[in-house]
Design a protein around this nucleic acid. Structure first.
Lengths: 221, 221
DNA sequence: AATTAAACTTGCAGGTCTGTCAATTCGAGG
DNA sequence: CCTCGAATTGACAGACCTGCAAGTTTAATT
């Protein structure tokens, strides 16, 4: 998958550094799209965040929409990559779930750009995402991982049988994202600090508990 | 001099019907802002949804931003108004919570415009909302209502003591909103229909259960 | 009927933003 | 040394889109 032409040598030289510029553009694009959404983002603002010009960005990425799609694919790949380092096999199911919830909660908190991009894409009704086939395959791992843990718990009868990995992932994502996505309206209305400013450990503990209690099998009839 | 002259009579006549136009503009503005966000919305598109022109909208509302704020205040007032019809006093706390959760879940589902406006405002970091004092007072009732139910449950020892109304409202809102807000990315990635297209009763039941289990007091140590 | 003020429209001016095209710089290889 | 193609830039045209100013219609009032 490498186009290994003059990678090292060319990248080292100061002038004509396509790879370095490409990376810098992507980084600036993530920040700008996350901050202002697709329509609100300005190509000039992105260019200003680099040492280049708007024309160069188009030369590399072929336009605003394609750049946005590249950004989207990138941030999704990053979170799934980070998740791949979770080492859950040696944890009992309950602790594995706790680990996943805490990881997810922290990741959203520390990567507000990712969360904002996801929200922006949903506000656009997934219009751009539909054009990318990569999006679907990239996100399979988390469901497989979560599914494995849940299955183990179900075999041991410490998790209820009538939930599946997608249900659980949805609950975790919902509770974790809300603090980030709705921090401004919710915080302003109810005068409670949210997002990274709020009482992170307490709310994270709450989410873990909510999920784990839900997963417990019914004890009564 | 008061300007409440000829209210009824003037509104009845066909031509020059400011009240009717005002309402029509607001309705169109809700749809347009919800659909495209603040920046994405076009004043011309709003005007096209009425029988009037862009200039008239400015004449009435004083510009795009003030119109947006009016829209925001309106939709918040509407949900709180709808909530005020919940009759919870004659329900035991568990059933009252169920009632609140189901109402909220349904409301989000049936008022996607409201949800999209809230999301858009959060993406704008609450910038517009901060300019409106009304926003804070309008939203007090739901917390009072929820707080009353929780207090009753805590006195009866059927709800745990270490949660408050805002925690619970946050969990309910998070779980209820996610199906609407993230339906496009989540649905596309995991091939599961969400929002109004999904299995509404099942997911609504899940949310009720998640919240109620969380509220139960610890049974063990 | 004449007047007045609100309701409403038309057209313009200024601003912003994107994509592209022609031109230029630069590094590398012959 | 000189050519070639990739990298990079400046400038422009074409769309939009908003707010406003000036003019017109209409209903009520005198």
């Amino acid at each position: 998958m490498a186009l290994q032409v003059s990678v090292g040598s060319a990248a080292m030289r100061k002038p004509k550094a396509p790879e370095a510029n490409r990376a810098k553009i992507l980084q600036a694009a993530v920040a700008e799209f996350a901050s202002r959404g697709f329509k609100g983002a300005s190509m000039d603002a992105i260019a200003a965040g680099t040492n280049t010009t708007r024309a160069l960005i188009n030369y590399y990425f072929g336009g605003k929409e394609k750049l946005y799609l590249t950004v989207l694919e990138n941030v999704y790949a990053e979170i799934r990559h980070a998740e791949s380092f979770l080492d859950l096999d040696h944890l009992e199911p309950t602790e594995a779930i706790r680990s996943i919830v805490e990881f997810t909660y922290n990741y959203y908190l520390e990567h507000e750009d990712f969360v904002r991009l996801v929200v922006a894409e949903n506000q656009a009704r997934g219009r751009h995402m539909k054009k990318s086939a990569a999006m679907r395959t990239v996100n399979r791992p988390i469901i497989d991982t979560l599914g494995g843990v849940i299955a183990r718990g179900q075999v041991d009868d410490i998790f209820r049988a009538d939930v599946d990995a997608i249900d659980v992932h949805m609950a975790i994502a919902a509770l974790g994202m809300f603090n980030v996505t709705n921090q401004y309206t919710f915080g302003a209305i109810f005068q409670r600090a949210m997002g990274a400013k709020g009482d992170v450990p307490r709310r994270r503990r709450m989410v873990v508990e909510v999920v784990l209690r839900w997963l417990k099998p019914e004890l009564d009839g």
